[in-house]
Write a protein that binds this DNA or RNA. Structure first.
Length: 197
DNA sequence: CCCTGATTCGC
DNA sequence: GCGAATCAGG
């Protein structure tokens, strides 16, 4: 793959939006994050005020200084312009009953505790649900204590019963859930589709 | 260990 | 110009 105008443009756009090099590379396809980073540098756009390493490479080992005129004409302090960040909606806080929806919820009803009606929770694409049902078979079934940064925090079952655990599969980068659960947690809002059956 | 970006350098 | 390898940090 080569850096066509379109690809470069997308690169610029995404980079500007604060997307990571790996995400951009993934989106573009055919390139590695290294390629993206390399290109970013060549294009001149580099440090965004973002996480991770900001400017550590600020001290190269030794520079023979081949008469580098220091062509830096960019007195750009810090526009302090927070780029529109994607923002991650929820940080699953499995406390009490605050679960998004319980897909594979069994028909268990805690004695005397009728579950509150879950209105619009059934507007999830069948595909996504099916996917969830599948992965839940492989779920690590972790307890609250076992959850880590990279374990899916999707709750399964009812907290009031023994049938309660967290997915625990590897989370999707940056999200609190694994891929499958991200799929049902963050519905584009129009996964609507009338299956005629 | 996961991830991040930065730099180097042979191609 | 390109990007893998490497580096450096969180």
């Amino acid at each position: 793959m080569s850096w066509t105008d379109e690809r470069v443009e997308l690169l610029k756009k995404m980079w500007g939006e604060g997307q990571s090099a790996s995400q951009i590379a993934k989106e573009l396809g055919g390139v590695t994050r290294n390629a993206v980073i390399g290109k970013v540098h060549r294009l001149g756009l580099s440090n965004r005020t973002t996480s991770a390493s900001a400017a550590k490479a600020a001290e190269p080992k030794e520079k023979p200084a081949p008469a580098a005129p220091k062509v830096e004409a960019k007195p750009k302090p810090q526009p302090k312009t927070e780029p529109a960040r994607p923002v991650t909606p929820v940080e699953a806080a499995p406390s009490g009953d605050s679960r998004p929806t319980t897909p594979a919820r069994k028909q268990i009803i805690p004695a005397g505790q009728p579950l509150p009606p879950q209105p619009s929770a059934n507007e999830i694409s069948p595909e996504a649900l099916a996917k969830v049902n599948e992965i839940e078979k492989k779920a690590k079934r972790l307890t609250l204590m076992e959850l880590t940064e990279r374990t899916c925090k999707w709750p399964v079952g009812d907290p009031a019963t023994e049938d309660f655990w967290f997915c625990g599969l590897p989370v999707q980068q940056g999200k609190p859930y694994c891929e499958a659960h991200v799929g049902v947690a963050f519905q584009p809002m129009s996964a609507r589709r009338d299956r005629k059956r």
